[in-house]
Design a protein around this nucleic acid. Structure first.
Length: 284
RNA sequence: GGCCCGAUAGCUCAGUCGGUAGAGCAGUGGAUUGAAAAUUCACGUGUCGGCGGUUCAAAUCCGUCUCGGGCCA
């Protein structure tokens, strides 16, 4: 029996959770989270994590395993996911890896380049410097990388620089060495990406936002005392905070969350469109 | 009923002395290997409320009508 992992991807609110349950049933599988924010405990409502009822149907892994005070990243996700997947496979079950965090999935499926890990102190230092300054230094240390980096994007510039500084090597060399190995991996993967019309997706987003706000999102956010800067970025977190503080009304809050979610969904679609190994699954 | 203010992109609005219009938001497309629900790039033709007038030329000035909002009755 073929129990190689099965990936279920797609934009937020496209129905990944319920589809993954269906597919898990067909493939004798267990669900593994691939969502950056559903990793956190205490963000279940705002991150639209699977409900308690859904989790009781069959085993769900890597949901709510991190503290909101922690910061995750793609590498850490892989570190968490690999043993879980291996364990499921060892029992002869199929890992159904479900989520919308494109970068995390990419790391899991195609591996990580041999690059140095993020350095908080260095980042803080770089964040304090003007962008032009960082760009100039990158040009100096690694002209090739500078020439192919979006230099308006502070994140990308900082990261390239971080790699150069921490490794003492050129980011371009390290990255090129890795890219060459990725091509054949895709042919051994299986999975699907849910596609819906924008109209449909937008309607589902609106419906879900309303359900969140009616279903305890306010209480959830109010309860979260300390969160990492990472967690603060969850869509809905700031908006609900503003609502709780009386800065905006409920209607505005709902609209802001909807807009942010729609924009996120669009970025996810752009990402997954490039993942040619995923089979599109149109749902009308 | 009278007077005043407003009507310009899907929304909120800007538009100088008349020279046929542009911001923000929304939306769309893209980039994206350790912050990724992040970060970032590109994309602006619309009966300038309708009709008429003045003018070489009207979003802009004049008249009138319609629809909002306000004030006075």
């Amino acid at each position: 029996m073929n129990n190689t992992p099965f990936y279920i991807c797609g934009p937020t609110a496209s129905g990944k959770s319920s589809l993954s349950l269906e597919i898990a049933e067909q493939l004798d599988g267990e669900i593994v989270n691939a969502d950056a924010f559903q990793l956190y405990r205490g963000l279940e409502i705002i991150s639209a994590a699977p409900s308690q009822a859904e989790r009781e149907i069959l085993p769900h892994h890597l949901y709510g395993v991190l503290n909101p005070t922690e910061s995750a990243d793609a590498q850490r996700y892989v570190t968490l996911a690999k043993p879980v997947i291996a364990e499921i496979l060892s029992r002869g079950k199929t890992p159904i890896i479900t989520g919308g965090s494109g970068l995390y999935l990419k790391f899991l499926t195609h591996g990580a380049a041999p690059l140095p890990t993020a350095d908080e102190a260095l980042r803080a230092e770089m964040d304090a410097r003007p962008l032009e300054d960082l760009v100039a230094q990158l040009h100096e240390l690694d002209p090739l990388e500078a020439s192919r980096t979006a230099l308006q994007n502070r994140r990308f510039v900082s990261r390239a620089l971080e790699i150069c500084i921490l490794s003492g090597q050129k980011a371009s060399d390290l990255r090129d060495g890795w890219e060459k190995q990725t091509v054949e991996i895709s042919s051994q993967l299986r999975g699907l990406v849910i596609q819906r019309t924008r109209l449909d997706l937008h309607a589902r987003i609106a419906q879900r936002t309303r359900a969140m706000l009616d279903g305890g999102a306010l209480k959830e956010v109010a309860t979260l005392a300390q969160v990492s800067p990472n967690c603060e970025k969850a869509i809905g977190f700031r908006e609900v905070r503003s609502l709780l503080a009386g800065e905006i009304d409920r209607h505005t809050c709902e609209n802001l969350i909807n807009a942010a979610t729609r924009q996120y969904a669009k970025r996810q679609e752009t990402w997954f469109r490039r993942e040619k190994w995923l089979t599109p699954k149109l749902i009308a």
